[in-house]
């Protein structure tokens, strides 16, 4: 690993940031839907946290692909988030705590099973499984809040149409930063910058979905897309700066050096 270990974020640090900011973001939307563009910025750390958890677990070589870890984590997080839809409205106050901590528990239990019963000998398995599942639950709850926490009367279509997209879009945004940067020269800085880039891309996609979803979400959708695009360009610049440092050589075209 070419990274200086003293500079790396640990997953508890990232998780704490993601949990606090993500919770604020979700509650902000619940409080007033017009705050969504601000809340979008606060949800990006949760993507970073999830991508970092995938990185921590997948670096050990699990015997299953990085993509399996990604969709496993999101399956826990998003499935728990979707259970919020059948909680009795009278108990609405348990959301989002029930889902996020439910996902944390399921993730931790899976980690314990992998560690104690299957005996995988990966020291970070329990911690990072829990962090991964929980951070995806935060993101899924955020998207659910963004698209459904509005007055239900204005919907032209029911929210359940969006569920598969919430699930799979989070999956890709979480697993791709590590999977896309895999190789001997992979380092946390570049992976996390790519993760931020893809986080803004994913929120932009959901801004578009919000515009199409209902007339009442038009303003929210446009503002989310604008904020996401601003973030996209900033993060793209930051990520490309890291790529420039790490790449061996850039060439517009040419042949690899002869070897035969």
């Amino acid at each position: 690993m070419s990274t200086e270990s003293n500079k790396e974020f640990t997953s508890p640090q990232l998780y704490l940031i993601a949990l606090v900011l993500g919770m604020i973001a979700i509650l902000m939307i619940k409080f007033s839907h017009s705050l969504t563009p601000v809340a979008v910025i606060l949800i990006w750390p949760a993507f970073l946290c999830g991508a970092n958890a995938v990185r921590q677990v997948a670096r050990y070589g699990l015997g299953t692909g990085t993509s399996s870890i990604g969709y496993w984590g999101t399956a826990v997080g998003a499935t728990m988030a979707f259970t919020s839809q059948f909680i009795n409205p009278a108990y609405n106050f348990v959301s989002p705590y029930f889902e996020i901590f439910g996902a944390l528990i399921v993730g931790a239990v899976t980690g314990i099973c992998a560690q104690k019963i299957i005996k995988m000998k990966i020291p970070v398995m329990i911690r990072d499984s829990a962090v991964l599942a929980s951070s995806t639950a935060i993101i899924a709850m955020f998207f659910l809040a963004m698209l459904t926490e509005y007055s239900a009367a204005v919907f032209t279509l029911d929210a359940y149409i969006i569920y598969p997209l919430i699930y799979i879009a989070i999956t890709l945004a979480i697993l791709h930063p590590f999977n896309g940067s895999m190789g001997a020269g992979e380092n946390q800085r570049r992976t996390l910058r790519l993760s931020a880039l893809e986080a803004s891309m994913t929120t932009g996609l959901f801004g578009l979905i919000a515009i199409l979803f209902s007339e009442a979400l038009l303003l929210t959708g446009v503002s989310v897309i604008l904020v996401s695009m601003a973030g996209f360009f900033i993060f793209a610049k930051r990520w490309f700066a890291a790529v420039k440092e790490d790449t061996y050589e850039f060439a517009w075209t040419g042949y690899p050096p002869a070897e035969h």
Partner: peptide, 29 residues
């Protein structure tokens, strides 16, 4: 309609969760 689709995505989720645990045991093959 909502019950159908939500139960579909939740059963897909449970399938995906449980299909990864054996992969840990099998080490990819």
């Amino acid at each position: 309609d909502a019950a159908f689709t939500i139960s579909g995505i939740i059963s897909a989720g449970i399938f995906l969760i449980n299909s990864v645990l054996p992969a840990y045991t099998l080490v990819g093959k």
